[in-house]
Amino acid sequence: MDNGPPDGQAGRLRAGRPGRGGAVFGSTGPQGHRQRLRERVLRHGPAGLADYEIIEMLLFSGIPRRDTKPLAKALINQFGSLSGVLTASPTALRAAGAPERSAGVFGCVAQLAASPPREAGPERLTLDSWSSIFLYATSCLILSPKGQVRALFLDSHNNLLVDEALTGEPLHDVGAAVASLMRRAVALHACAVVTVHLVRDDTQLDQALEEARPLATAIGQAAPPLAISVHGHLAVGRAQWRSFSFDGDEA
């Protein structure tokens, strides 16, 4: 079922005390800080963040419920700069305390930064290999909730048209998920589709892939009558990925 994307160059993918009535505002804690950083990026772009704050955000995927600021500053101090952190080896990053997932993400971001500038014209993100899709998933989807299944709709040249989450519980309500996916693909005039499962940290990739087999099979059956190609299903975990035809490791 899983034929994989056509051959080609990998796409490029960057305290006060409460009053007697109790606290007026709910505690923000690390999650509140993370939300504020995300809002600043959405409003002003990454240029509005300090170097250590960029490292903080890149650590979110590997440290889901803990303050990342101390580690971000420690990494900047140890490696000397934002660039030094991003270009450090995964082994050195892990030795400095960075989680495995984050160490892989730093490398992906460094690859993006090193990509040569494109010619002027409309920005088109090409996803024509498993490596390019994995790079996209670990860099552009870093803030998406784990456990989510996303659909990547592509044009005839494997350029990304739209990336969005499948609604509901796609791994359990397969029929509804596939019907919604096909309607969306037709509306977008998509020529191909890839599904990407952002696997939770407590789930093995092989287990997640097997759980997604009914969904992948149903998509493979529903798409051809609509002249839509199915490149396959990718399970993305801690610096690794799995598909039904290929295994990848970016540790």
Rank of each mutant, 00 (worst) to 15 (best):
L86V: 00
R183E: 14
L160S: 04
L82Q: 05
V149Q: 02
P122V: 05
V186N: 07
E123I: 10
H157F: 11
S243Y: 03
A88L: 00
A235N: 02
R242K: 12
G237Q: 12
T68Q: 08
E250L: 06
A216L: 08
S81M: 01
Q35A: 15
R124I: 13
A88N: 00
R36Q: 14
L141M: 05
G175H: 01
A47W: 00
P46L: 12
S61I: 11
L42Y: 08
A177E: 07
A23K: 15
R43M: 09
A208V: 15
V105I: 11
V109S: 09
G19T: 03
G97A: 10
V85R: 05
D155C: 03
R238D: 10
Q221F: 00
T126F: 09
V230E: 12
R150T: 14
A120E: 14
A15W: 14
E169W: 03
I142F: 02
Q204W: 06
L135M: 07
P145R: 10
L198E: 10
I76E: 01
L188I: 11
D206Q: 08
T28L: 14
A23P: 05
G32L: 09
G168K: 05
A95D: 15
L154I: 07
R14K: 12
S83R: 05
E39P: 05
G97K: 09
K73E: 05
F244L: 10
L141Y: 03
G175D: 12
E250G: 05
V194R: 01
L112D: 13
H197D: 02
V193K: 06
V149I: 06
A72Y: 01
A92C: 05
R238W: 12
S156E: 02
Q111H: 13
V230G: 07
A185P: 10
P99Y: 06
V85N: 08
M1F: 09
R14M: 13
A223T: 10
L141S: 00
I142L: 12
D201N: 09
M182A: 14
A96D: 13
C108Q: 12
G16L: 08
Q111S: 14
